[in-house]
Simulated scan of single mutants.
Amino acid sequence: MKKGYMALRKELDGILSPADLDRLPRRWQLIGDIVLVRIDGLEDFWGEIGDAFFKIYPWAKGVAVDCGVHGKLREPDIRVIAGEVSETLHRENHCTFKLDPRKVIFSPGNMNERMRIAALGTDEFVVDMFAGIGYFSIPMAKHAVPEKIIAIELNPVAFEYLLENIRLNHVEKIIEPLAGDCADLTPVGVADRVIMGYLNAEAYLEVGVKAIREEGGILHYHEAVPYHLFPNRPVERIQAACRSLGRGCEIIEAKKVKKFAPGVLHAVIDAAIT
């Protein structure tokens, strides 16, 4: 977003000091008609920054500051700084996602990973343990066309959007949504492929491994990991879970999805479980 950053800087030149201009964000997210941005301080100028985004994106409905995600339900903390932030439609890779950024998370920064997963799983039985609003289940159902996807989500608001997005994308015959904790609802010994898209899912690794068929299958395990511990920490956690269950595993690939926080990486490990 280099051009966008330069445009933002130009709009705020003369309003912010040179030092504060250097603190402006280089990246932000466009979710439907909402601009979602992380800002390092500059609270006294959030209103002016919001107005500048409206000049860059005149079609936008609202601008909000992303202050992080909290709790087991992955609830977003955002502060609206311009316009109105409410329910929106986000379109990506021929999929439609309805969501309210005030209530549920969505990261366009994960788009490449969603597109990669969308090409996998044809004719397979898939379990998406942390389905959210359908981040992975929807594109996989539309493009790869698995035999079945069990999509589990604990957050009741996200689950309602999951139901709506299944309908919007006409994949009712493929995705079976389940509301509740994947620790209780994940089936055992049935999956060809398991997606663990929650970044704090270490405690659920054995549940994910147990879901995979005795004949074997693929596990996609996501983790927020310090750069200096990648890929060893998530790989070792998968290996430990497999050992405890008497299962074998072979690491296929360790991928860097994106920067998650200063010094922390969003990583995904693909492992063949036997």
Rank of each mutant, 00 (worst) to 15 (best):
L162C: 12
A141M: 08
E160M: 01
D184L: 11
A158H: 11
L185K: 10
M115I: 14
I150D: 01
E160D: 11
D192M: 05
L163N: 07
M129S: 09
L185D: 01
K173R: 10
G180T: 00
A179Q: 04
L178A: 06
E206N: 06
V209Y: 13
E202D: 15
A151P: 04
V171H: 07
N200Y: 10
F136Q: 08
A203N: 06
D123N: 15
Y161A: 04
A141C: 08
I150G: 01
L154P: 01
I150P: 00
P146I: 13
N200D: 11
Y204E: 10
P139C: 03
I152M: 03
R116K: 14
R193M: 00
A144M: 08
V194F: 05
R167H: 06
Y161F: 10
E124T: 08
Y204V: 10
E160A: 06
Y198F: 11
A131V: 02
S137P: 11
V194L: 04
E160K: 04
L120P: 12
E147T: 12
A211W: 07
A151N: 02
A151R: 00
E202N: 13
L168K: 07
P187Q: 12
Y198P: 01
E202Q: 12
I175C: 08
D181R: 09
P156S: 07
E172A: 10
G132L: 02
A183R: 13
P139A: 02
A179K: 04
N155P: 15
P177F: 04
A158R: 09
D128Q: 12
K142E: 06
A191I: 05
G134P: 02
L154N: 00
I117H: 05
A191V: 02
F136A: 08
I152V: 07
R114M: 04
A119Y: 12
Y204D: 13
I152R: 03
L168A: 15
R116Q: 15
E147N: 14
V188I: 15
A211I: 07
V145F: 08
P139I: 01
A211S: 15
G208Y: 02
N200A: 12
K173A: 09
D181C: 08
E160T: 04
I149G: 06
L205C: 12
N165R: 02
I152T: 02
L168F: 14
M140K: 03
N200E: 09
V126C: 05
D128L: 11
V171R: 02
I152G: 01
P139F: 06
H170D: 15
A141E: 07
A141F: 11
A151M: 02
L120A: 12
I174E: 01
I174W: 07
D181T: 01
I174T: 12
D128C: 13
G121P: 06
P156G: 06
A119S: 11
E172I: 00
